[in-house]
Design a protein around this nucleic acid. Sequence first.
DNA 1: TGACGATGGTCAGGTCTTCTGACGAAATAG
DNA 2: CTATTTCGTCAGAAGACCTGACCATCGTCA
Lengths: 148, 148
Amino acid sequence: MSPHDDGRQNLALLCFYPARAMEARVLAAMAEAGFDDITAAQGRIAARIGPAGTRLTDLAAQALVTKQTAGHLVDQLERAGYVRRVPDPTDARARLVQMAERGWAVVALARQVEAEVEAEWTAHLGEEATAQLRAALTRLREVTDPYR
Amino acid sequence: MSPHDDGRQNLALLCFYPARAMEARVLAAMAEAGFDDITAAQGRIAARIGPAGTRLTDLAAQALVTKQTAGHLVDQLERAGYVRRVPDPTDARARLVQMAERGWAVVALARQVEAEVEAEWTAHLGEEATAQLRAALTRLREVTDPYR
DNA sequence: TGACGATGGTCAGGTCTTCTGACGAAATAG
DNA sequence: CTATTTCGTCAGAAGACCTGACCATCGTCA
């Protein structure tokens, strides 16, 4: 969060560029494919829905937003037909947020675009450097991601 | 933007964790030091102000927001005494956004916290891996940052 | 088993961020 | 010296988030 001073860029800022670029690319591809009613915030929530469905509280925790915010975003996703809420058989208080058919279609597209962009990056950096990058970031995650 | 599926995490998502962690750390340190009226969005704009001042349009372009958004954020920063606007001597239409004294104090604190966090990361990864990480991210920036 | 703290989720209301659209004023090009 | 671009602002609205207050259910422990 501080400027370009001594040439050596802030490591976190360097991390930010690829993340932002990927989000923009995926969102643009979505819009082009007709899924123009998805926002970045909705995507960040939707991306964390597991195969069998995920509780709202868990989605909120992983995305680092409040339950209210997550609930609001899930409302929108539900209204647009991307997800549905079903009762959690193991807890009468809870409900599971599950992908609907339309949701799976979007996920498939997102994965494809992500793969394409990663391929571009790998072409730019080279196979070995990319593998090293992934390894370093994975280890860095141990100290930067409170959830796992 | 897609879930934890095949164990191998999305490269962009891996980039996102450190960026988010750093922003949270810096913001928390700010608040603790009494600069509790700064928001993340304001910080992202302020971080791009150069030593001699920067035009609003340039700030907007670098932060990837519209001129209106940047203008609004600079309004807030100005009201809080962190920055000031001065006429651009080379262009009567433009004004330069410059750091004020209070602004420099915050920048100094932010730099210090950034350095501390980077040191933690370096301790976790090792000197060599950190240097490689920085090099890879710097090269990746060539294809992910439209501004430089 | 029955009170009680912890947990899952919603409702209400508000702030901050960000956008589109339209516009004056100054610079630049032909 | 007009035509076009560029710098910045005003106006209005939507989206993303938050705090605080609540209710229903779960788990526990006397």
